[in-house]
Write a protein that binds this DNA or RNA. Sequence first.
DNA 1: GTCTATATTGCGATAGAC
DNA 2: GTCTATCGCAATATAGAC
Lengths: 199, 199
Amino acid sequence: MAKNDCRTKLMEIGTRLFAERGLHGVSIRELSQEAGASISMISYYFGGKEGLYSAVLQEQFACFDQIEEIRKQGAEPLDVIEGYIRWTLQRHRNNPYLLRFYTSELTNPTLWFHTIVQPAIEKIIRILIDVLDDGIRRQQFRKELHTGNAALALAGMANYFFLSTLATENLVSHSAENDEELIRQYAAIFTQGILASPP
Amino acid sequence: MAKNDCRTKLMEIGTRLFAERGLHGVSIRELSQEAGASISMISYYFGGKEGLYSAVLQEQFACFDQIEEIRKQGAEPLDVIEGYIRWTLQRHRNNPYLLRFYTSELTNPTLWFHTIVQPAIEKIIRILIDVLDDGIRRQQFRKELHTGNAALALAGMANYFFLSTLATENLVSHSAENDEELIRQYAAIFTQGILASPP
DNA sequence: GTCTATATTGCGATAGAC
DNA sequence: GTCTATCGCAATATAGAC
């Protein structure tokens, strides 16, 4: 196998298997076999199974570095909210494994939760809170809004749609075709609510 | 140890350990030791580690049987929505382990996902969809609302608040003291949105 | 850089005593 | 109903050949 092709292949298979069954659910035997490499390559490149896991985790959460893009200069709060929903959907579409690591680390944190996962999530929630505060300052949003809780509500809507897929695919379509429609709907629910007329 | 005290203790410790580290992250050696019982008791009572896990899972999701209570006879859709949020919050407060099994099974389903977890989640989402359809029929909710997506949005808000705790406790208080306030806020966001004035 | 072979530890399950 | 002792296997890690 060509140089570093082995490393790449181990990362690729490791991502899939760790996502599907978690750190403890995968053996390096099976992993290396699926990658078509020898078992010792995992120690050679990553210093062991946990090293490979942390490398995979780092790669998975690297996409959070680009989150600032949803807050382009002078963007309206409403645009940023829609941008966040779109960004979240695309993130999960592009990488169906991310949510597995995301929720697995939130509920069963490993050693790397505090260095990799928590900062990424905090960063994005902080941005949402800032945007909501900004909208209140501009008198666009209700001034009694608790922006922390509201930010979590928005993140929850966007992420749970994917999280629940396996249990709700009989009830609700999760096809990517409807994503733009979904973005509109979720932006509308979050900003205008579901009521037909103002209370 | 008194009869069936052993069984109960194994369930109790199993619940905690499986929640914290997943099915594969726990050994029956450690589990039985923490329960103060012999390792062979797990086979005796549950037929093995997986049997214990499925028993724990069944117990955890039993609370979903009572969900119909949020839809008492003749309740207004708005009341049911608030009732759902309150019921979800209390469910997680009463049992901090439930969400671990819930998300772990959604992202890394075991053999018992389809018999225990999926029916429970489907049932609750179906009720929410029914309630939203009812609200549209009564002309309380916007008639163009996609009730499936909206139901997932509501469930997402309520569940993600807890799911994100570990990553967002520096930004947002997750104390149970604020639960009634949170219920009001989430009901308000879902029904009225965050805008200061109608668009 | 990649392999095979092996050392060592820990796993789940159960037989058999009490 | 509960225990101890043990079986057979799979786990991770690594030494050493190429």
